[in-house]
Design a protein around this nucleic acid. Sequence first.
DNA 1: ATTGCAAAGTGGGATAAAGTGGCATAAACT
DNA 2: AGTTTATGCCACTTTATCCCACTTTGCAAT
Lengths: 142, 142
Amino acid sequence: MVDLIGEYHHKVDAKGRLSLPAKFRKDLSKDLVVTVDPQENCLYVFEPDDFNLWVQSFFEEDGGFNSRNQQHIAIRRELKSRAVDTEIDGSGRINVPANLRRWVEIDKDVVIIGNTGYFEIWDAKRRESTKKTVDLASLLFS
Amino acid sequence: MVDLIGEYHHKVDAKGRLSLPAKFRKDLSKDLVVTVDPQENCLYVFEPDDFNLWVQSFFEEDGGFNSRNQQHIAIRRELKSRAVDTEIDGSGRINVPANLRRWVEIDKDVVIIGNTGYFEIWDAKRRESTKKTVDLASLLFS
DNA sequence: ATTGCAAAGTGGGATAAAGTGGCATAAACT
DNA sequence: AGTTTATGCCACTTTATCCCACTTTGCAAT
């Protein structure tokens, strides 16, 4: 699995394309899956296999996915419907479709954050205001 | 794990480069991770594996990247976003990116301190003023 | 001590790479 | 076919990286 770290300020162009940090490109496969963070704060970008592992992880606690469990089916429907697969193009960019951008109010300026096995795309303004409310030291040491 | 000791006064150049003490270079791997001390007093520099161990040490029960515990995800996001990986170049220097320097108000003059498994980078002035407020004897014997 | 030498640390210029925007071509849709 | 949307390609700007050279420091041998 990839191990992505760091925070990068990039821009989504008029066509919805976003160039990835070169350091991420070195490690990532060409095919990626973009999806919406369930809290709807940002977008998550996975390698395809890791996206599926992530979806599955929501069923692990109660005995794995059960195809007759209506709640399981509904969860999977929502997770999968908010995802799209994309390819890194020759200039190192991916498409961030408008419908996904709308979920998390991404406009032009975004912050890309490596979060170990995947990376996140935040609207720059939202990221800044969230950061201010997070006191890491108190999270860690209280 | 490395065992770094000592205090060295170095300078960050106009391009954000910092040469490491030769004694550290002898022991360190080429790849390193620079991150912000959670107290925001200085920067920490780890070997990549030790950085990940350090991040994990903040989680008692570890669900790996599959952990859906929202607080865990947030902590990991903050820790990983404040980090960057870097390589020691041909002149024995690493990059200390501007966004990390801003967290701990590093300008030009810095103090590099070996702290066993990692080393720290302090703004020289802050290091001096902090040193004055620390009474080692009372830390040790009270 | 003094000198010589090598290593360490620092700075600057040249080169390469990354990120971004725009144009042109190709594909899809009506 | 015409309009719109998407994709690939090229070019500009900025940033990072590489390489070389100067200065200082530390060590060693005389």
